[in-house]
């Protein structure tokens, strides 16, 4: 008597042993359905964002170095960054108007920027004396670690599909780093202008950069990228010398060109299983 073919039904009483595995058991299994084929140049484009972000961090550090060690006038970098920020804001308003995008009201922007400005002015004596009794070495070490964490945890917005909620953690880290460094400076004015500079470079500029990429103005984005990276590299060269520049450029090269190829090579280890079952999430703790 021929046996009925095996069916994948648990409730059915069948003429097979309990540990029987049919050859059709895994017929519906699918592998790596979501793997995308990355192009090398697209990846280089994306990795350039990391270079841009680390360049802004280095820019802040160099300006601090200049003000703290080389007795730069702290107002000049802030004036430069403020004027650039104002130009970018005008550009932002114009492009938004052309593309019929929703923008924040001028009065609102003015109000919040004035608020921050005055609060910074009021608190700058407190900020200046915040870490007076702490030794400088511990401040440098803490600042370094904050920068490393900042690079690791930054939300590099690559895809603009859908209303993704961006994380502000890296901005918060950047600002606390700025306050930390400003507390080492010698005058209230220096502390105030340095923090303002940091807010513009690490808080407002990434937002504007994201905006240009969202509007598909890739040429303008590349211009920003090259200007910032080039400017920072020049500053590294002029202040720290050739050796520092070569190290820094090598690091940038590795991120920009070796990183993507390594990323593509890693794709072959990807193994994602999908079947007609529901994936079970392991429950770590009982709620």
């Amino acid at each position: 008597m021929a046996r009925h073919p095996w069916k994948k039904l648990l409730w059915l009483k069948q003429d097979y042993a309990d540990n029987y595995t049919d050859s059709s058991f895994l017929s519906q299994l699918k592998k790596n359905t979501t793997v995308a084929n990355y192009s090398y140049f697209k990846l280089v484009n994306d990795f350039a964002l990391i270079v841009l972000h680390s360049s802004t961090i280095v820019l802040v550090s160099i300006v601090f170095y200049g003000v703290y060690h080389e007795n730069w006038n702290p107002v000049i970098p802030t004036l430069v960054s403020t004027s650039i920020t104002f130009i970018f804001w005008v550009v932002y308003m114009v492009i938004s108007y052309i593309n019929h995008l929703e923008v924040a009201s001028v009065v609102g922007t003015l109000k919040s920027s004035l608020l921050i400005l005055f609060i910074l002015l009021t608190l700058s004596p407190v900020l200046k004396s915040l870490t007076d009794s702490t030794s400088s070495d511990s401040i440098w070490a803490l600042s370094c670690w904050i920068c490393v964490v900042n690079v690791l945890f930054n939300d590099y917005v690559i895809e603009f599909s859908g209303a993704t909620h961006t994380s502000n953690l890296s901005k918060n880290l950047a600002l606390s780093n700025a306050i930390l460094l400003a507390s080492r400076l010698y005058s209230n004015l220096a502390a105030f202008s340095f923090i303002l500079f940091c807010i513009q470079v690490q808080g407002l500029f990434p937002m504007f950069n994201n905006f240009t990429r969202r509007c598909q103005m890739l040429a303008f984005h590349r211009f920003q990228l090259i200007a910032i990276v080039g400017g920072v590299n020049y500053l590294v060269y002029s202040i720290l010398g050739m050796s520092a520049l070569s190290c820094w450029a090598a690091l940038q090269g590795i991120i920009l060109f070796v990183g993507p190829s390594y990323f593509i090579r890693l794709q072959k280890y990807k193994e994602e299983l999908q079947g007609p079952w529901d994936p079970v999430k392991p429950r770590i703790s009982v709620a």
Partner: peptide, 23 residues
């Protein structure tokens, strides 16, 4: 809950947070 803070809210909060942590 997670909350999308405005940039000025964030700035003010972080400044106060850093000051209070150090004090």
């Amino acid at each position: 809950d997670s909350n999308p803070y405005d940039f000025d809210e964030l700035l003010l909060g972080i400044i106060l947070f850093t000051i209070f942590i150090y004090l």
